[in-house]
Design a protein around this nucleic acid. Structure first.
Lengths: 245, 245
DNA sequence: CGGTTAATTGACCCACTTCAAGCGCGGTGG
DNA sequence: CCACCGCGCTTGAAGTGGGTCAATTAACCG
């Protein structure tokens, strides 16, 4: 089915940034891919406590992982873009410890856990690459911890924008430092663990320094070097080297 | 070699809390295990930028993963205890994006990456369990993000102590709510992303509420329910259910 | 043109930081 | 055996980054 191949291309691209992918491996992934679904912005793709029977690859759109705390506050722990699995941990965790929400309309491809298990049984190298994608998520989490623990709001925001620029570039979503970033300031505040008010003021400061523009759901980085410097951004944690894994 | 088996027992225990482990799998791990090493407190087990040829299982002791930021500040992103791999991401990442330091004297068992690769090629279920351990690390990272983003210092500390109590119990390190916690308040501050001064005051508040004692490198939880409530602690993220993975 | 959600602004507040001292204790050398 | 040293713990005082509350404006949308 040609259509499914198109949808998976962006995932292949993400993997191929880190290692070679054989034709057989591509086919194994195509075989494993199940239902394709388009959901609207705001859809709860996964809810805390779910025991899903498949994991979901985001072919197109933007999703957020989040946890709700007692006072009703929400903490976003990750954003996912084209080519990211939004709940691969569910394959081995069984019970989801967090929710995933579509922040935009999203095209989703489901991978039944049974099919993923078959991959782990017959395609060791591909298994390592799938494993790698979850390690990437973990590396991003660690980076967020460093940033949240030791950076000012301004540095934090600069770092986050740099991260998204690079990730968008890897899957071909960015052109001239501009990429889709269709979320609200409230969402951003929930991701940065701060108040909307302060996100707004921090953003104004970044704009005032002529580092970024953010309009119509697109973020444009005007001065990538300046932004990287401010955000102390080093892309090493994203493991962009192409090497045998 | 009987000695090596003793050292790996705590790791078996960690895995067996989540799924069955066959005799063959245990043997595969024993075969994969290489050099055993004891290092003193303060040793840099892994440094940022390293390209290790093996991953290291902590058989006994306490280690911390950390990143150093520009102003010299340190952010600890994880603690590891008996039975944890301290740098399994290195198996697929190749280049380490952070350091690992021995906080106490540690007994380490190295697993050459070549041997781990062999496991991924011949033992799919065991591979999934190794993968699971890195997913556990990631789940803890996410929880830390939630806590750091949305909790007060007091709640944060309560949560951290709960997490360590549960993890220590899983590998048999805790008795009557008491377990080894041989770090300094400065280390704890680096993990919580706060100042030592405030760690000290927060700790006094926890003590004042008769929730914990912390003396001679051991933490004693006096009122586990109270501590859990204060820290909004739910152990779901630690995936303690024993089920087929 | 109302109704709703997102962005923005102002004023005040406080949790946590910073800076600066003291204190206790184990280790070490004379 | 004691003086000294260094590290970790503790305390006080003063400052601030970011939060909270509340209101206004802008953008969107049928």
């Amino acid at each position: 089915m040609n259509k499914k191949e198109d949808l998976l291309n962006v995932f292949f691209r993400k993997l191929e940034a880190r290692d070679d992918l054989s034709t057989q491996e591509r086919e194994a992934l195509l075989d494993a891919a199940g239902e394709v679904r388009v959901v609207g912005a705001g859809t709860a793709i996964v809810s805390e406590g779910d025991r899903p029977m498949q994991s979901i690859l985001l072919a197109n759109g933007l999703t957020a992982r989040f946890n709700i705390v007692e006072d009703g506050g929400r903490q976003i722990t990750a954003f996912h873009i084209d080519g990211d699995f939004v709940d691969l941990p569910g394959f081995l965790f069984r019970t989801m410890d967090h929710g995933v929400r579509a922040m935009t309309d999203c095209t989703l491809v489901s991978f039944p856990h049974q099919a993923l298990r078959r991959i782990t049984e017959h395609c060791p190298h591909l298994t390592r690459l799938l494993w790698l994608t979850t390690l990437l998520d973990a590396a991003i989490h660690r980076q967020w911890l460093v940033v949240k623990g030791r950076f000012s709001a301004l540095e934090h925001m600069a770092h986050l924008f740099c991260e998204h620029l690079v990730r968008a570039e890897v899957v071909g979503l960015a052109r001239n430092g501009e990429f889709p970033f269709p979320i609200t300031q409230t969402d951003l505040a929930d991701a940065m663990g701060m108040s909307t008010v302060h996100v707004n003021r921090t953003l104004q400061e970044l704009r005032g320094k002529n580092l970024v523009q953010w309009e119509h759901g697109r973020l444009r980085v005007l001065d990538e070097n300046g932004l990287r410097k401010l955000g102390q951004f080093d892309d090493a944690f994203l493991n962009l080297d192409h090497e045998p894994r």
